[in-house]
């Protein structure tokens, strides 16, 4: 019997790699995803569930629009645990199944009161939100969020976002602090329409420092309608030795009900964030 085990393992490893296909599904046990997973509905990992996604896994979301709001409805919702650690050579990819993919093809990877949220070397693209984190802790590192409406979005969360690349989204980061706190460091946030969108109830408990925040047009930082408190984004590189330009900020200067945005102690040169990424991919 013992001799059979290696043979069986060999057979399994040589089996044709058919994608795992799922529509609406609830995961309440421990599961491991690898190779390719195709999702055409809402996959929910419950409070008791634990999902591990292995390096090199491709999670492909079909474009479905059940409520006709123009936003894809396929999503991965985590209430239990998700550990998705790729590697530099074999990142995990979350993407759209569409032949001509567009932002919003699928809804989001969504952490809601999750027990564990750990992402490393993960690429999330063509979603409404590359990732959303609410009412929990999350660690996101060495990851890339591109071609989404919101790259990374969080609310009432304790988030640690480091060494990641957020680009070509409508909002690089969109957040509602609401008592949450965290650190956003050593990231490159570039070529989004809005680099950082501080929607509401921010008081500066989420520290954005040592990031390269460049070429986000029209605004590097924008305050939402209900953000009356001033916010500082210290020690970042803004693409200019003079620091954060008022022209690239939407704050009290446009709407007196808002607080003021500052970028104190601006860096005089790039942080050289995302050094882990190949030069050709930056």
């Amino acid at each position: 019997m013992k001799k059979l085990v290696p043979v069986l393992l060999l057979l399994v490893s040589c089996a044709p790699l058919r994608p795992l296909v799922m529509s609406d599904r609830v995961i309440s046990d421990q599961q491991i995803w690898q190779n390719e997973v195709r999702i055409s509905g809402v996959v929910r990992v419950t409070r008791q569930g634990r999902l591990t996604i292995l390096p090199g896994t491709k999670v492909v979301f079909e474009r479905i629009d059940r409520d006709g709001d123009g936003i894809g409805d396929a999503e991965l919702r985590i209430e239990g645990e998700l550990v998705a650690r790729g590697t530099r050579e074999q990142p995990i990819l979350l993407t759209s199944a569409a032949a001509d993919p567009q932002p919003g093809d699928w809804k989001f990877l969504y952490f809601d009161y999750a027990r564990k949220a750990e992402l490393e070397y993960l690429i999330s693209e063509y979603a409404y939100s590359g990732v959303q984190v609410h009412f929990c802790r999350a660690q996101i590192a060495f990851s890339e969020f591109r071609y989404n409406i919101d790259g990374v979005r969080f609310s009432t969360a304790n988030i640690r976002l480091t060494d990641s690349y957020l680009h070509h989204n409508r909002h690089g980061i969109r957040y509602e602090e609401r008592g949450g706190k965290g650190g956003v460091r050593h990231n490159r946030i570039s070529d989004n329409q809005i680099g950082i969108f501080a929607v509401t109830r921010g008081v500066g408990r989420t520290l954005f420092e040592l990031n390269d925040i460049v070429d986000n047009r029209p605004y590097q930082v924008k305050m939402g309608l209900q953000q009356p408190t001033a916010l500082d984004f210290p020690r970042n590189w803004w693409g200019d030795v003079r620091g954060l330009s008022a022209e690239t900020v939407f704050d009290q200067r446009q709407d007196r009900a808002l607080g003021r945005v500052t970028g104190s102690n601006p860096l005089q040169q790039p942080v050289a964030a995302i050094r882990w990424m190949k030069e050709s991919d930056r």
């Binding site: 936003i71 959303q132 509401t200």
Partner: peptide, 13 residues
């Protein structure tokens, strides 16, 4: 207070 509605709700169109 955390979940009170604001304009920036999740997913509402």
């Amino acid at each position: 207070s955390f979940s009170s509605s604001s304009l920036a709700c999740v997913g509402k169109t």
